[in-house]
């Protein structure tokens, strides 16, 4: 089945708390002494009226300044954040590429971590067994695969994470600036792998500040600014617009 993502009129409000974690003691004392409100909060729209349709085969790059809402948009699609208003409809299984460190148990070997990582993404051991060999081969870690992950270098760690996320043939892959892991050789190989993944009618959403990579990998680009999609279209044009109108004017 063809994967699609459609988001309509989605707004996500964050509350910024003056004191995010009051203690029970403070709260009780505060109530007894009839002082003013202990926690004040201020609303902040991380995403504002997002309308977006992504079809199978699209590699969508998301660019924007820090705090524009790029990662938040991905997290909303995964289901971590629920928008206060709007509708999100996703056909296909969403797999976020897990950040280095999450879902890895450093005491366990690389091989065991393939299964641990898969389980956290909702994949069964049987499913992961199918991908095990491909993951090990792609990550080029066969020599170290039975060594506890705590002895891995950052690069090795990143290679394993990337291999797991891309080898399980996700229908919808979300990548948030993780790609830098590994040496030039692995980055080039990873880029090729990303290209391969598109062919099986999958969706890739890619958040990055490296505009060169965005142009190279994506066939559609979204510019986010202060939580709004201000422009979308051809990668080259969008990147030029972004550099001229947003980066240089701000």
């Amino acid at each position: 089945m063809k994967s699609t993502i459609s988001i309509s009129n989605a707004s996500l409000r964050f509350q910024i708390f003056s004191n995010p974690t009051p203690t029970l003691k403070e709260t009780v004392v505060n109530a007894m002494l009839r002082r003013g409100k202990l926690v004040t909060s201020r609303d902040f729209y991380a995403l504002n009226d997002i309308n977006l349709t992504i079809e199978g085969g699209q590699r969508v790059g998301i660019i924007g300044l820090n705090g524009a809402g790029k990662s938040t948009l991905l997290k909303m699609i995964v289901g971590i954040y629920a928008p206060q208003s709007g509708r999100i409809e996703v056909h296909g299984r969403v797999t976020p590429m897990i950040e280095i460190g999450t879902g890895f148990d450093v005491e366990l070997s690389g091989r065991e971590n393939i299964y641990v990582n898969g389980a956290i993404l909702g994949y069964s051991p049987q499913e992961m067994a199918r991908y095990e060999k491909d993951i090990i081969d792609f990550s080029e870690l066969s020599e170290f695969i039975d060594v506890p992950v705590k002895y891995y270098s950052t690069g090795m760690y990143g290679r394993l994470a990337f291999s797991i996320a891309t080898m399980i043939e996700p229908e919808i892959l979300l990548v948030d600036e993780i790609f830098s892991a590994g040496d030039a050789h692995f980055v080039a190989k990873g880029a090729r792998r990303m290209m391969d993944m598109i062919k099986s009618s999958q969706i890739v959403l890619y958040v990055s500040h490296s505009l060169g990579q965005i142009v190279e990998l994506c066939n559609h680009v979204i510019i986010l600014h202060h939580g709004r999609i201000i422009k979308q279209g051809d990668p080259r044009e969008m990147v030029d617009y972004y550099i001229n109108e947003i980066v240089n004017s701000g």
Partner: peptide, 9 residues
């Protein structure tokens, strides 16, 4: 797999 989230539901 279809997931639908609608704030109006």
């Amino acid at each position: 797999m279809v997931t639908v989230f609608d704030s109006a539901d």
